[in-house]
Design a protein around this nucleic acid. Structure first.
Length: 632
RNA sequence: GCUCAUGUAGCUCAGGGGUAGAGCACUUCCUUGGUAAGGAAGAGGUCACGGGUUCAAAUCCCGUCAUGAGCUCCA
């Protein structure tokens, strides 16, 4: 099961059947892509077009062109598009033979307004990709002819509500070895009203962007001089992170996990054994070579290339910033003689790992170079795999339910039957895949099974959510691993008094705290539930006359562990409320003459507004209940 | 890493070859109030960094770094 979005963005050919299933709006968007191409061909007749499919919220067309299209060009392009729409050209389908199509492409006629003295290079290539048995068709609108299987709307006049969104680069057919094309993204709707609604939605979504909210609320900071993708958690963000850790840690204690601590680095040999080095060298920080070895190499006049080889071949030793926690945990497991009676062993750690992500991939808290996984490794027998997976999913469920996250999808990554790249006994794979499938169905959440999506070492379940701009991010994951126990020669003594190989399960219900916090910020729009809110209560004295009674209330709150503060500024109450609202503080307590006289506090909630007056004891009781229950 | 865009005060942004701008935030003073902005004054910048062109560069050019969108990648 692969969804349409993935199909459209991937570069696999759509089958005719899939094309016939195109929704009305997809058809419209695909047609608008042709209108875009027509406009570009008018302005730059030499443009070479590749593919122009509909995508989730619009369409794009890939074009090769010496002129660098920038957003400044959009106005002119849109103007030409409007003309094409106004001319209300008919989209006309013409079936042609392969030879006819090829001839047209060779005379530059495809993706163009007329014959040219250049070939339609990409169209020729695309033509060659069309299977023998498939019909070949040309679509014409006005003088613009294009190789296209369709379908299209009847006339260009149907494409009246569109907007060009952005320009980016894309490799032809998604292959980095192919030429880089300019990809122009646009969106289109049935009418202007729907288009405007969509654009407004986009604006609304941007307000929730965790990077924006995180800055406004002072949760985290990235500093140029610290480095790309390296998060500085500010005090308020650290509170959220700590609360999440306390929460999960508490759950781990209930579920029979043992929490451990391990260092952030390990010897290269460790990662040679695990296979991370040099197999995943590209995505790791370079090794740290110890001082003496470095000096010795320098004295020998060793070049960087030679050093790299020596490291790979194990002639020179060094340390690696850990890209994963598993090797360390494995060493804890293997540090003792294990009996089957000890299993499962569940080792958990909030483990910080380091990965050398390419600079262009980094962004906000969702993709960073140093992040902390709520990681654990379970060592169990084959018979225990099913139960352990269920236990892991229970934990993920508790986490997501507690935080009210419902908008996620579950992906079961299975092996590709035709491939032999997988390690481990096929029978065990079958069992593990069945166990994962069964576990996933027990979630009562839609899930997709995707073959070929397994890791080479075992099948997995991923929990995937979308961010405000519609990008998908993997959060929690549960993965079965047959590889590392083998590589590290792990064993336990079975009832038969013989050594047996344990199975490992990697799991992280949050994935990484960084990415998870990003998702939470966007989910709550910065208005965190009280138990997570960096500042839970703010006392607002009506005037400075009431500082002393207000301070008493503040101290009572601090006494019971509330994160509370007082706004004692010379502002009027309206201004103080406004500030507290902007800071998204859940509770505002107003103290003035009335409250002092009756020994009450007036409570205002950031979203429920004025709640009325309560006795201080009543408020504290309610507050503590809310925090204890992690109410949403 | 690649393509394009962006980088001006703590934040949001205007400006632009000839003395650096606004709003908010900040500091001080006045005001002491009742559920989303009371008033005044003040302070704050090597215009990301490094080169170049120029009598003169924040402005133009080149490079670097960082940010954003997309592509590729993602154990």
């Amino acid at each position: 099961m692969v969804n349409i979005h993935v199909m459209a963005e991937g570069n696999q050919r759509k089958t005719l059947e899939e094309r016939s299933q195109m929704t009305d709006v997809e058809r419209l968007r695909h047609s608008t892509a042709h209108v875009l191409a027509t406009a570009i061909a008018k302005i730059w007749p030499e443009a070479q077009f590749a593919a122009g499919p509909p995508v989730e919220n619009g369409f794009y067309y890939d074009v090769e062109l010496n002129h660098r299209i920038s957003p400044d060009d959009f106005e002119a392009i849109e103007k030409e598009m409007t003309i094409v729409v106004k001319e209300n050209q008919k989209f006309e389908r013409i079936d042609v033979s392969r030879d006819e199509a090829l001839e047209l492409a060779k005379s530059g006629r495809l993706g163009a307004l007329g014959e040219r003295d250049i070939e339609s290079t990409f169209k020729i290539d695309l033509l060659n990709d069309i299977p023998e048995e498939e019909e070949i068709s040309i679509y014409k609108n006005g003088d613009f002819w294009d190789l296209c299987a369709g379908p299209h709307v009847p006339r260009t006049g149907n494409c009246k509500a569109f907007k060009l969104m952005s320009v980016a680069s894309a490799f032809y057919k998604g292959d980095a070895n192919n030429p880089q094309l300019q990809r122009i993204y646009g969106t289109a709707f049935k009418n202007k009203t729907q288009l405007n609604e969509y654009l407004e939605q986009l604006e609304e979504a941007k307000k929730r962007d965790h990077r924006k909210v995180g800055k406004e609320l002072g949760l985290f900071h990235f500093d140029e001089s610290v480095g790309q993708g390296l998060v500085l958690w500010k005090p308020k963000g650290s509170i959220i992170r700590n609360e999440l850790q306390k929460f999960i840690s508490n759950e781990l204690d209930k579920k029979g996990y043992s929490q451990v601590f391990t260092p952030h680095i390990g010897k290269l040999d460790l990662y040679r054994t695990s296979g991370h080095f040099p197999y995943y060298e590209e995505s790791q920080f370079s090794p740290i070579v110890d001082r003496d070895s470095m000096q010795k190499l320098a004295d020998e006049g060793c070049t960087c290339g030679e050093l790299s080889n020596k490291l790979k071949e194990g002639e020179t030793d060094g340390f690696l910033l850990k890209p994963m926690n598993c090797p360390h945990h494995i060493k804890i497991f293997s540090s003792e003689h294990r009996s089957y009676r000890d299993l499962p062993v569940r080792l958990a750690e909030f483990g910080t790992v380091y990965r050398w992500e390419k600079s262009g991939e980094l962004g906000g808290l969702t993709r960073v170079r140093s992040f902390t996984q709520d990681d654990a490794h379970l060592f169990c027998t084959d018979d225990q795999v099913q139960d352990e997976i269920m236990g892991c999913l229970d934990l993920v469920k508790v986490v997501l339910n507690t935080l009210g996250i419902e908008d996620y999808r579950v992906r079961v990554g299975l092996r590709d039957a035709d491939s032999n790249k997988y390690v481990g006994d096929p029978q065990n794979w079958d069992r593990a895949e069945n166990a994962l499938r069964e576990a996933a169905s027990s979630l009562e959440v839609p899930f997709t099974e995707e073959s070929g999506e397994a890791a080479f070492y075992g099948p997995k379940i991923d929990f995937v959510v979308k961010d405000v701009i519609g990008r998908e991010w993997q959060l929690g994951t549960v993965q079965v691993d047959y590889n590392l126990p083998e590589r590290f020669d792990l064993n336990y003594i079975g009832p038969d008094n013989k050594p047996h190989r344990p199975v490992m399960i990697h799991r992280a219900p949050f994935g990484s705290l960084e990415r998870f916090v990003a998702v939470l910020i966007e989910h709550f729009e910065g208005s965190f539930p009280t138990w997570l809110a960096p500042e839970q209560v703010r006392i607002l004295p009506i005037s400075e006359k009431f500082t002393i009674p207000a301070e008493e209330r503040l101290n009572e709150l601090l006494e019971v562990g509330a994160r509370a503060s007082m706004d004692n500024s010379a502002e009027k109450i309206g201004a103080k409320i406004r500030l507290a609202q902007l800071d998204k503080v859940p509770y505002m307590l107003i103290i003035g003459a009335n409250e002092v006289e009756t020994n009450t506090i007036s409570v205002r909630h950031r979203s429920r507004g004025d709640i009325g007056s309560l006795s201080p004891e009543e408020f504290i009781n309610n507050f503590q209940d809310e925090v204890r229950n992690r109410a949403l």
